[in-house]
């Protein structure tokens, strides 16, 4: 079985309302695609994503695996703090990556601050994606 990874640029969801954003991403995951979104959803939208996922669970769609990588989560120096602040102001929610995979394919996404490990069910192997 082929594994499809679909990249979604932030521009594709930027102008959508919260419900349409969440539904667009979830619809892709329900098509058995692993979604890699440029940027991240707002915290409230993440909660909405979980709630809407629950509404759509049935015998074939078992839910999602979700992971968000935020850039520069550990700021150590004043320069790095200022730099991440500027990046945040310029990029806003475009910074970072969000990965959404259907639970029938993605067994687990293990996340450390610096990397994501994605374990798939079908392949029984893992692929690593460094942030």
């Amino acid at each position: 079985m082929a594994l499809t990874i679909q990249f979604v640029p932030y521009a594709e969801i930027e102008d959508l309302g919260p419900a349409r954003r969440v539904n667009k991403l979830l619809d892709l995951a329900r098509q058995n695609k692993i979604v890699v979104l440029q940027g991240r959803l707002k915290k409230e939208e993440e909660a909405d994503l979980i709630a809407i996922t629950m509404e759509k669970i049935n015998e074939t769609f078992k839910g999602i695996e979700l992971a968000v990588i935020q850039p520069q989560s550990r700021t150590e120096t004043l320069f790095e703090t200022v730099k991440s602040g500027v990046v945040n102001i310029l990029l806003g929610d475009r910074a970072g990556l969000t990965i959404i995979g259907p639970a029938t394919i993605v067994k687990q996404i293990k996340k450390d601050p610096d990397k994501i490990e994605l374990f798939t069910k079908e392949l029984g192997k893992r692929s690593k994606k460094k942030a």
Binding site: E46, A47, I109, K111
Partner: peptide, 14 residues
């Protein structure tokens, strides 16, 4: 570091 934990705490913070 599970996303559920982060989402719950992030929503409470928001």
């Amino acid at each position: 570091y599970s996303q559920v934990n982060i989402t719950i705490i992030g929503n409470l913070q928001a």
